[in-house]
Design a binder for these strands. Structure first.
Lengths: 336, 336
DNA sequence: TTGTAGGCGTTATCAC
DNA sequence: GTGATAACGCCTACAA
């Protein structure tokens, strides 16, 4: 590995000069700068990030917390697209990222200490158990943190606009004449809370009555369970005319169940998903679903984090809501 | 950030002693070691990886090349599962990883130079354009490299056993009485080459004739195109009784097309996928498909790479083939 | 405009 | 068994 000193030696200048020239310092004359840069390239010089980091106390490395107990995370379009977006945006700004876990080798290391060990300039928490004490510790630490889809006190959060999402869906259904709307929602998280609240609110606004047994509790990304809940809904005396699923994957379970009952979508029953995964556009009938803008969410997370890192004085924590859009497919029938 | 010197000062010992004690050196007495470790914990000491890296020239950081031009990569179960597996296995051995791209900030950096800049101990190439000159450069460099699903000269490669995959599929079809088997394959890569070769070989072994127009060229992960090719196949005078798709996603396109023709799976036509994605198990009829063992592939990639890093002398490059297994679903009809 | 030298936090090689 | 001390490669005052 060629280093500054090697370049300095071959050119008979000092390391300091080389260092400055490579960083385009105005202290160094243009010709010397030119020569040094050319020579550095010829010699294949690559800076040593560790040495630089040690000196400057900046790693240009961001920690990403991505805990997916259920193994659903990375395999889920919502998160994989977001991660891609985060990676791309970081790269544009000269940052890399490392996954921050709480195990590394033999000795456990908390998320915070892992991030400290790698001298991360900041951390993005994409998915995690937000009740975990270690996550709280990380969020409250000296390291700049941005969370996604979860708000912590005085910290920046990027939020998919779930209120708008459910509101849009309910209004769309209402416009299509539906007033018997069932909602199978995901497990208890702040995201779910918001969706449920927004669902009720929109229904109230539109004068839609919601029988208690139209609301079903399920898990995200769990088709089988959504299937079971669908069965319960189909067994009701007063069947809903439409079912809103926790997400597009869960809908797949509902689909199977609906077909088992000999019903057709949307002729016999309408359905709506959430997320807008790749497959929702592929399958026929194309799924009506609310598409979360995961690319923008990832991008904003990066931009807000970098802002916080590079301009700590002027930075103010805030919540950024990112809206999505309704993908109107063929699974909602116009009735009435 | 508390450092060695702080601990040394509070205990009135030297930094050297602290350093050794924390690494359980036998030079230091048990009591002193104990005391130092306790104090370090109390003071919240976390090592500085950059300083350590600078000194030891080991980063415990692995570069991962994951280029997905089509954005399919991370969103694809095969790769996302593999990446998860890589992350987990690395973590067990005390390594982190960083994505290695060829852009970082304003100045382009080749993959190799990016890896060098981050002082990666090794690199795993998960997906990439293997014809790219920069990839070749990386593979031929001084950095230990393991590639996945592609073999380079004298380098370790972990390969999903595509020969076995196609062979298994064809034999399964043959056992179920099929002899008119169409194969829509993916774009031209070494993986595809192997699958095609293996397909022909298995057919030959079993005395199955393969008309030229039973073989169709398509792209992976591209349902629409697979749908078009399906249409061509269905239009043939002598229709195949079964279609093998490039992957499970592509099959979804075929599914739509088949339904459009008013045909039912598997009564009117049988189908087989490849990969064993989450959805293949969810949808009904459950898809018959060859499940690639992406978890094991990721794990082996890590183990072979670490072996190469930590025991360079005894290391020998080799190709490791990882077999999968046939998921027998309900999409292949027993005929004849 | 260029050079010098100290130090970032750690490890490792010597003395003692 | 413990303590100085010299690197590792880079940046940056400050001196020339």
């Amino acid at each position: 590995m060629v280093k500054l000193k090697d370049i300095a030696d071959t050119l008979n200048v000092s390391v300091g000069t080389v260092s400055k020239a490579l960083r385009h310092s105005h202290e160094i004359s243009d010709e010397v700068t030119d020569l040094i840069i050319r020579t550095a390239n010829e010699m294949g010089y690559i800076a040593n990030s560790s040495a630089r980091n040690l000196k400057t106390n900046k790693s240009y490395n961001i920690g990403v917390v991505f805990v997916d107990k259920s193994r659903a995370g990375l395999g889920h379009d919502y998160f994989s697209t977001m991660l891609n977006s985060i990676r791309d945006e970081l790269s544009i700004h000269g940052y890399d990222f490392t996954f921050v876990s709480n195990v590394i080798g033999e000795n456990r290391l908390s998320y915070l200490n892992h991030a400290r060990y790698r001298r991360c300039d900041g951390v993005i928490i994409v998915t995690a158990d937000f009740k975990d004490q270690e996550i709280t510790e990380l969020v409250e630490s000296e390291i700049p943190v941005v969370t996604i889809d979860h708000v912590f006190n005085n910290r920046t959060a990027i939020l998919s606009d779930n209120q708008e999402g459910l509101r849009t869906i309910v209004h769309h259904l209402h416009e299509n004449g539906h007033s018997k709307i069932a909602f199978i929602h995901g497990e208890d998280t702040s995201v779910t809370e918001q969706r449920i609240a927004s669902f009720y609110q929109a229904c109230e606004e539109l004068g839609i009555k919601v029988p208690k047994d139209y609301i079903k509790d399920a898990l995200y990304h769990f088709p089988k369970q959504a299937g079971l809940k669908t069965r319960e809904l189909l067994a009701l005396k007063d069947r809903p005319t439409c079912i809103i699923y926790p997400d597009d994957y869960a809908y797949m379970g509902g689909l199977t169940e609906i077909e088992k009952h000999g019903l057709k979508i949307p002729e016999d029953i309408s359905v709506v998903g959430y997320d807008g995964i790749f497959l929702s556009r592929i399958l026929r009938p194309m799924l009506t679903t609310y598409v979360q803008n995961s690319v923008e969410i990832g991008k904003q997370a990066v931009l807000r984090l970098i802002e916080q890192i590079e301009k700590p004085r002027s930075f103010m924590a805030k919540q950024v809501k990112i809206g999505g859009n309704l993908q109107v497919g063929q699974t909602v029938k116009k009735i009435g």
